[in-house]
Nucleic acid binder design. Structure first.
Lengths: 202, 202
DNA sequence: GGGTTATCTGAACGCCTGTTCAAATCAAAG
DNA sequence: CTTTGATTTGAACAGGCGTTCAGATAACCC
């Protein structure tokens, strides 16, 4: 036996990436073997090397694809210019986009240390581009008097960290829906970057 | 050769845990071998089994120890009762405590999936106890009119996620000191849970 | 229907894995 | 100085690892 029925590069390729994504996300890159991935695809381990030069590239391609998708999604739908609206747009976009890709998000944060130095550098560069977008929104909002933020860079990191948190615990079917979570987080983000209310001891 | 000079259970034991902690944090649990840990301690792999029944227990003990330390630290220094002061106390404590233990924090978040189901359950239970403390502070603040938070549970998760973010990017010696980071984050947390200012288009 | 080529198998390569254990060694007690 | 017991070695176990490749097979083109 060798080539089995209905096998195609166009079919097997995506199936390899999909299996790798799922397995890397649930067990971790180092804990998953090429034979496990092959098993999930229904193929022998050797066949994987028609679709990736090695295991490392498989991980990198998944991360790179995710970051490219993220930046592309931001580009195709540019947000409003007005700072508050832009920040709301960013917040809601971030929560939704990441919620739709839990596995990609997970490995893109957890498996950074398993990247070779040059691959790490590239992924970090793309992530930086994304973070800079939020920082720019905050900085502009400060200039226009819409926000009160002492350190836009730190605030950007803080907001992203807070929004990323959603992915770690939110599960569909709970007490609150994703739109509700989205609204609650937008409320907190908006307040966090606004001028504080005057204490009135009321 | 066998037992080398100056060897003791009291010495080797901590050294094993320390080496495991360092290696797990930098390469990941699955990517680190018992022989690597032994090498760092200066001992053969077999000797490790005088100090841990298996690799899994080594990971679990590190996590359990970290969570116990965390809860013990909170207990020995109970915060103020007044909600705003309690929240500030919690925020500053969280940032400082976690900053002092980057490796423990890292593995306690990253290696959860490498725990056996029962071990996972135990660690999650301890983490829950900690999160509940913040939730209780928020809930009490809402009751007393100090905070305006629609969902204390979600707000607690959001605040913790934001504070955890510090550990992922903050490095000593940068433009801002840890006390400054602490202050900036406290500003954001305080505002995020407060009543929003009235829009005045000023 | 025959030839070509992309695709896949199955076996092999050298090496590493967590764990066990008899034997060797050393520290301390009597 | 001898005995005792804790500690460590070093080898072994059974199996898994990423990767390579000659040969087999099936899909496609003419």
């Amino acid at each position: 036996m060798a080539r089995t029925q209905g096998s195609h590069s166009d079919i097997t390729g995506p199936r390899v990436r999909k299996a790798a994504l799922r397995l890397f996300a649930s067990h971790g890159y180092a804990a998953v073997s090429m034979r496990q991935i092959a098993g999930e695809v229904g193929v022998q381990a050797g066949a994987l090397y028609n679709y990736t030069p090695d295991k490392q590239s498989l991980l990198f391609d998944l991360m790179k694809g995710h970051m490219d998708d993220l930046l592309a999604a931001r580009e195709t739908a540019p947000g409003p210019v007005e700072p508050l609206a832009a920040l709301e747009n960013f917040t809601r976009f971030h929560i939704r986009f990441h919620h739709d890709r839990p596995d990609e998000v997970f490995i893109s944060y957890m498996e950074l240390r398993n990247l070779s130095p040059e691959n790490f550098k590239e992924i970090e560069g793309l992530r930086r581009l994304y973070e800079d977008q939020l920082e720019a929104i905050l900085r502009r909002g400060v200039e226009l008097g819409a926000f009160e933020v002492a350190e836009p860079k730190i605030a950007a990191m803080a907001v992203i960290a807070m929004l990323n948190g959603v992915n770690t615990w939110f599960r569909e079917g709970g007490r609150l829906s994703l739109p509700q979570i989205e609204q609650l987080h937008w409320d907190m983000v908006r307040k966090a970057v606004s001028a504080p209310e005057l204490p009135n001891h009321g």
